[in-house]
Design a protein around this nucleic acid. Structure first.
Lengths: 107, 107
DNA sequence: TTTTGTTATCGTAATATTGCGATATTATAA
DNA sequence: TTATAATATCGCAATATTACGATAACAAAA
């Protein structure tokens, strides 16, 4: 065992969990916050700013890309990452919908 | 390695990531949805409803309790779980605040 | 072409998570 | 008291995640 039994859950539950999971690491939170603070886009600065190895940052970026939150553009020899606005807004809507429909029935 | 370097992030980032992480499993999403669907509170039904072993469900409930989302009350020989409304609302606010302050500056 | 700077990927070690059977624990019912 | 039912915890196996060094890939600069 050790493998999540995704097949017993529906697509909405799996997708939602996947979003939450990817956001569930402080480095990825920090990356999103840093990108959003800059007017201009980010490349290697994240390595210095955050203090993880370049390979590690690259891996985190890849995961954020995997749910469509980040877009990357080649800019010379460096990479310019930015947040995908539409995706960002859609995700926020999604999560709010989960919070709102999961009503607060109590004992 | 393998251990998350929490010490290089601030408390807000770690806490936020922790919330996301705990919500980042389909079983825990399903548990929250199921509890919220019932007028009355839940006990052992989750085991049948969700289809994971009792030990596994109990573990997931423990994690949801760890961030304060669930409250449990002893009711006879069974356990009655419910969503903590205040906590739920506070968490939603928190996440929305993250989404809103992480502005959408793009390349 | 060679060098340099930047990012991605591979391989690996350390740790965490998931899931479950077995076994406590605890409270009601008999 | 003894049995029963519900939940929690322990211990383990399988898998996933995190982090990083080494190295590949690639584009601009020399």
């Amino acid at each position: 065992m050790g493998i999540t039994k995704t097949q017993i859950f529906d697509q909405q539950q799996n997708e939602l969990a996947q979003f939450f999971k990817i956001l569930g690491h402080p480095a990825r939170i920090a990356i999103l916050q840093y990108i959003s603070k800059q007017n201009t886009c980010i490349c290697n600065d994240l390595v210095e700013e955050i203090g993880l190895a370049q390979a590690t940052i690259s891996q985190h970026l890849k995961e954020l890309k995997s749910i469509g939150l980040l877009q990357g553009e080649i800019e010379g020899k460096s990479m310019c990452y930015c947040i995908d606005i539409d995706r960002w807004t859609a995700l926020q809507k999604n999560l709010n919908s989960f919070f709102n429909t999961t009503k607060k029935n109590c004992c």
